[in-house]
């Protein structure tokens, strides 16, 4: 079993109005050193197959087909360190 984490974020250059709003709210709370905020999504996915290489390929397919909209989003896959 593999516990993977997929992070989906907006591509650089794509306007993120939600990130901007959060940025404004953090400033309103007095966090004056916040330069920029980009909002994204995290998916924790448990795979039954224990082979990490096969897992990465499966996760990439999941990202391309559903988890990310590659018109506007990038994705990153994190697998647990090999033992």
């Amino acid at each position: 079993m593999i516990e993977a984490r997929v992070t989906v974020t907006l591509k650089t250059g794509v306007l993120d109005p939600q990130g901007k709003a959060i940025e404004g709210a953090l400033a309103a709370l007095g966090f004056a050193d916040v330069g920029a905020v980009r909002q994204g999504k995290v998916f924790d996915i448990v795979l039954e197959d224990g082979d990490p290489q096969a897992a990465r390929a499966r996760l990439e397919a999941m990202c391309e087909k559903l988890l990310a909209n590659t018109v506007i989003e990038d994705y990153a896959i994190t697998l647990p360190p090999a033992r």
Partner: peptide, 17 residues
Amino acid sequence: LLEAGLLPGALMRNASL
């Protein structure tokens, strides 16, 4: 239709939120 790839591009959150 965009998500299905039948048209190009994407629709994002309104700029005004």
